[in-house]
Amino acid sequence: MTDSILAILTALLVLSGAGFALVAAIGLNRLPDLYTRMHAASKAGTVGSGLLLLAVGVHAGDLSTFARALAGFFFFVLTAPISAHLLAMAAHKVGYPLYGESVRDEMKDYDKRI
């Protein structure tokens, strides 16, 4: 009984993780500029790979494996925003433009304000 519940839970986690990865890939292709693409890739993509790792931990049914999978999940969740933020800041500072219909750019005269 427990085995079948764990298997169903694993199947749900696997399917939702793959779905998040697909949503991230579609967003990467459909969104108009670099910064919005970064938003799709770094959030949905991270959740996708993290859910798949959690599925491994749940499927093993072993506390040490689950702890390792959880550690990997937290590692990805912590590092993805850092890398996306660094990349966005570098691209904005160098001068890659926003999408033409963007409403506001709060970093526009950041150098003058500090």
């Binding site: 990865a21 890939a25 670099l34 890739a41 996708g48 996306a84 990349l87 890659y96």
Partner: peptide, 17 residues
Amino acid sequence: LPDRVVALDMLTGIVIG
């Protein structure tokens, strides 16, 4: 180039999956 870097980061995530 930043678009390609974002996509490469995403590729790493998919390979982890």
